[in-house]
């Protein structure tokens, strides 16, 4: 493997790691908090919301938006680190 290829595969590995972490959070807030553990979380309330219901209809969506912006920042930094920035 030459330098160029090595750089590319290191970049790809870091990218996959980021995706893994971000998608784990994605899964946790929607399928976890909003569906699988909804009934347990519903025992807690914030304001008038039962917590599980809040995740399913509000919280998960807020986290989704944040996730994409975090992804954009991480990737921009990664691009710079490997000189793929343009």
């Amino acid at each position: 493997m030459n330098d160029k290829q090595q750089k590319a595969s290191a970049y790809w590995k870091e990218n996959i790691r980021y995706l893994g972490i971000l998608l784990a959070i994605w899964f946790a807030v929607s399928y976890g908090a909003g569906i699988l553990f909804k009934d347990t979380l519903n025992q807690f309330k914030i304001g008038g919301f039962e917590l599980g219901f809040w995740f399913a209809q509000q919280g998960a969506i807020y986290v989704f938006v944040i996730l994409i912006f975090v992804y954009v920042r991480l990737m921009n930094r990664l691009d710079k680190k490997y000189g793929y920035d343009e």
Partner: peptide
């Protein structure tokens, strides 16, 4: 909620 999470989560 399936529509709310489904249509925005798909976007992620």
């Amino acid at each position: 909620s399936v529509y709310l999470m489904g249509w925005t989560g798909g976007y992620v």
